[in-house]
Nucleic acid binder design. Structure first.
Length: 869
RNA sequence: GCCGGGAUGGCGGAAUCGGUAGACGCAGCGGAUUCAAAAUCCGCCGCUGGUAACAGUGUGGGGGUUCGAGUCCCCCUCCCGGCACCA
């Protein structure tokens, strides 16, 4: 055995061992219970970053822990390989997206392997491979035929200079990121997935997921956004609108209907179009509303603007004529694209009415009587529920009574009814981009939109293309889009849009189980492994990816492909990796971000940072604060260079120790140094065990130990108990800390004593097994070197022994009036009355009670006594 | 703007059911070892006062419940994630 810890050698040896024994090849015929452990697959952006390393280390800890706990574990890995960055790289470097992507996959796979993850690589998938996306196309045609996919107009960001559709990310302050042109909203035909058909089920089933973080379930619930309310119809005023009809609005505050003084419609609304045709100023305003991006955050923070259309509608209850306004804050995509405005009881309507001089009519009086009339300034109490006033026959009703009565009256007139509205809209999946899965549809002048038949799948994406940044190259490739209509055989045009990349990631977890099947999308093996028992990924996916996957699983279920509704039984959302950032400003005032590896920081005598300098020139730089590791802030730390310097185990140990998995993790070079120091001590202890404690290996631990040895052993088993408890709640940072405490205890054991050596062997075997999921290489090597067994993966998980934990006396805290004033010892089985007598007799109690009698004594067995005087 | 989360020493964090605040680690300070350094080992380490014993104070800010609050309730501030075409 080497006397020094040499991570490079032992990591290579351990990885060879796992490879040659195919240790992590998962099969479906094991007697063990199955455990499907999955980390969100990476986008092959070029290099592994620390966020990946953290994600996959957490996953690997779950996988290896369950392996040792006796489960049949599957931990696969693959590539979320379609997406925009490949196109951007192609434009920049003149490399086809496919080559760029596959090169990145090769490079990142090598990096991943260096970390020693217990991955079954035989199941690897890449979503850009035709073998993968053909099944996505196949499913698309099924869903289209079932009516779960349909086509309609949708809004996109249009760059009029580059003549291309931009992602929200590519719109910066309302302008295209490359052209700088003002972006406008444009309506184009797109395919939609009918996720709203499952809205109720997706919402209700959140209650069947006890092992998902509450915050994620809450975000999903709010995102689906079920609200119960009333649909009200405002008939068109025949004198101002030529045609017959009614304006529909949805409201959750039907109790305020009598206070509606105008209605507002979105710029794209039919009434807006009618009015614009007669009024050039209004047409110009509507054009103005179309400027700027489509992102909700942009729309919601915009200055509220509106214009009167001159059109009138009729209030469904009072018959009053109300003006119709166009307002930029009304969204065409939500509800009916129109709202009734009640300025007295809605903050946004209030501001709008004040701005444009529209009437404000108070119809609710707050039950606490906080106001009796509407003032100049909005106060939040106006929006509270209360009793109706100024509402004719509805006066005096409360919220529920008013809603019931008004809904009934609307229904009687045929002008509305109660209804449920969801915030969640259908999922638009068409992308006017090249590097994605082609939508398997054909447009025929005679037959309309026709799905590509199974025998013509996959529709292969041509990989030899040139990207210009002006639209998708597919639209310029007749060899791709010219085809015969599958139905009538006449010349037709193939769809050139591709699918949103969220589609690929909505079902990949099932394909891992059937990745070699060229006859079917998924097979019985998916039924064996699904659902994923533990899913690990970033909190940023809490809504979209997870909701789409839950929807897709149900769609697959309803196509008869799998008997499953929820794809992920347990979920852990990991925090971000952040690091200090540093910069200098150049002569134009632009920040030049400097990588932390090129910085040295000086501290004062207490260790507080005073200033930072660039190593190269010794001159000061500005400390820019703690930021998410990113290219733009140049504060990323390269995982590979860390592995080369310290070994994979050190990197894994630091990541698991520095923060709980769901919180943000701050990178610290000296913290990594500390992790490395700990592993060197572990190695040194193992070496010492062989060379000095050697005799203890086979000796039994005597039933009666001298007190100091019994204390050390109790300490070890107490820490083990703690570690097992923390493993169960996924708090891995304190698992590592328990392992450190065990080593601290072990190092206190004397050498040359047979009982001490026996305890050392027992304790070290506990330590190695505890560490094995986190630092598998060193645990594997020391387990063999110290003769504890052949393969630590086959060792049983350690459990604390009750005889080691037993103790005769315990220490209790003494409080006087809730303040800690001392402590005292009692036997472990002492009765409450004995504890109180002992407590009152202590010197500290006598001193702080100052002779006054105890008014009350609170005793918490095993914890403390509080004397109130 | 809307939805969700967070704030504890110089730093990362711990505190299992409302019961010893600061475990474990980092940084720092002091010492041992060394020709010297690195590495290693030992000790100290919230803040204020005090040589010390000890006392006071302390979990973003303000209020409340309780014998007892980092933990529960109300209000506020700041920071972070998401907002439907980044993945």
């Amino acid at each position: 055995m080497q006397d020094k810890y040499q991570p490079a050698a032992i990591e290579a040896a351990a990885q060879d061992h796992w490879d040659s024994t195919m240790a992590f090849r998962a099969t479906e015929d094991s007697p063990r219970p199955k455990y499907y452990c999955l980390s969100m697959f990476p986008y092959p952006s070029g290099k592994l970053h620390m966020g990946h390393v953290r994600n996959y280390t957490i996953g690997d800890v779950f996988a290896r822990y369950h392996y040792m706990r006796g489960y049949n574990v599957l931990q696969p890995m693959g590539w979320d390989a379609f997406g925009m960055p490949a196109e951007n790289a192609a434009i920049q470097n003149n490399v086809p997206p496919a080559k760029w992507t596959y090169d990145n996959i090769d490079y990142m796979k090598d990096q991943l392997k260096r970390l020693g993850f217990a991955v079954d690589w035989s199941r690897e998938i890449a979503t850009c491979a035709p073998e993968y996306y053909r099944w996505e196309q196949w499913l698309f045609t099924r869903l289209f035929e079932k009516g779960l996919i349909y086509k309609r107009l949708g809004t996109v960001n249009w760059d009029p200079v580059d003549e291309t559709v931009l992602a929200n990310e590519q719109v910066i302050d309302g302008r295209g990121w490359r052209s700088g042109a003002l972006i406008e909203k444009r309506e184009i035909p797109m395919y939609y997935m009918r996720i709203t058909a499952y809205a109720d089920e997706l919402l209700a089933a959140l209650d069947t997921l006890p092992d998902w973080p509450e915050q994620v379930k809450l975000m999903q619930k709010n995102w689906i956004g079920r609200s119960e309310g009333v649909e009200a119809h405002f008939p068109y005023d025949a004198t101002s609108i030529g045609e017959a009809g009614a304006l529909k609005v949805f409201t959750t505050r039907a109790d305020t209907l009598m206070g509606a003084t105008y209605v507002a419609v979105a710029a794209e609304h039919a009434l807006a179009m009618i009015a614009a045709a007669r009024n050039p100023a209004l047409a110009a305003f509507i054009e103005e509303c179309k400027q700027g991006g489509m992102a909700e955050a942009t729309l919601a923070t915009m200055e509220k603007k509106g214009m009167d259309t001159g059109l009138k509608v009729v209030h469904p209850l009072t018959g009053e004529s109300l003006p119709v306004w166009v307002a930029n804050y009304v969204l065409m995509g939500y509800g009916e694209g129109a709202v009734m405005a009640v300025p007295a009881h809605d903050e946004r309507d209030f501001a709008f009415a004040r701005q444009y001089g529209l009437p404000i009519r108070m119809v609710i009086r707050s039950t606490e009587g906080r106001y009796t009339e509407v003032s100049e300034q909005w106060i939040d109490a106006y929006a509270e529920y209360g009793q109706l006033v100024n509402s004719g026959k509805y006066d005096g009703l409360d919220y529920q009574g008013a809603v019931d009565a008004i809904a009934a009256d609307l229904a009687a007139k045929g002008l509305g009814q109660k209804r449920v509205q969801f915030r969640r809209r259908d999922w638009g999946i068409s992308r006017q981009r090249y590097w994605g899965c082609p939508i398997p549809m054909v447009r025929c002048d005679d037959c309309g939109d026709v799905p590509v038949p199974d025998e013509q799948l996959p529709v292969v994406l041509p990989e030899d293309v040139e990207l210009t940044g002006r639209g998708s190259p597919l639209t310029r490739m007749p060899s791709f889009f010219e085809c015969a209509c599958p139905r009538c055989g006449k010349p037709a045009r193939r769809e050139t849009d591709t699918m949103d990349t969220f589609v690929e990631s909505s079902w990949y977890f099932l394909r891992y189980a059937s990745n070699d099947n060229s006859e079917a999308m998924i097979d019985a093996r998916a039924g064996y492994w699904a659902p994923v028992d533990q899913y690990i990924g970033g909190i940023e996916h809490a809504i979209l990816h997870l909701l789409y996957s839950r929807f897709f699983t149900r769609a697959l279920r309803d196509c008869g492909l799998i008997d499953l509704s929820e794809p992920f039984a347990r979920l852990l959302t990991q925090g971000m990796v952040v690091a200090s950032s540093y910069y200098r400003e150049d002569e134009n005032g632009n920040k030049q971000w400097i990588n932390p590896t090129d910085i040295s920081v000086t501290t004062d005598e207490r260790g507080r940072p005073v200033n930072a300098t660039l190593k190269a020139d010794g001159l000061p730089v500005t400390i820019g604060g703690i930021e998410k590791m990113s290219k733009s802030k140049n504060n990323g730390v390269d995982p590979l260079s860390m592995i080369e310097q310290y070994g994979a185990d050190t990197v894994r140990l630091f990541i698991m120790f520095a923060a709980p998995p769901d919180q943000q993790l701050e990178w610290s070079d000296s913290g990594v140094e500390g992790a490395s120091r700990f592993l060197r001590r572990v190695w040194a202890f193992g070496y010492g065990l062989l060379t000095e404690h050697g005799i203890g290996k086979n000796s039994e631990i005597p039933s009666s130990l001298p007190a100091p040895l019994a204390d050390v052993r109790r300490e070890i088993h107490t820490h083990l108990k703690q570690a097992n408890h923390d493993f169960a709640k996924h708090q891995f940072n304190t698992v590592v800390s328990a392992a450190m405490k065990i080593l601290n205890a072990l190092e206190k054991l004397p050498h040359g004593d047979a009982s001490a050596s026996a305890i050392a062997f027992e304790g070290f075997s506990i330590l190695l097994r505890l560490l094995s999921p986190v630092t598998p290489h060193i645990a594997h090597a020391l387990w063999q070197e110290c003769g504890l067994g052949d393969d630590i993966l086959a060792a049983p998980w350690p459990e604390p022994k009750s005889d080691a934990l037993a103790q005769d006396e315990i220490e209790l805290m003494l409080q006087i009036n809730g303040k800690l004033r001392g402590s005292f010892r009692v036997t472990a089985d002492a009765q409450r009355s004995d504890i109180e007598t002992t407590a009152l007799a202590t010197e500290a109690a006598q001193r702080f009670m100052e002779g006054k009698p105890a008014k009350k004594v609170v005793t918490v067995p095993g914890r403390l006594v509080n004397i109130v005087v």
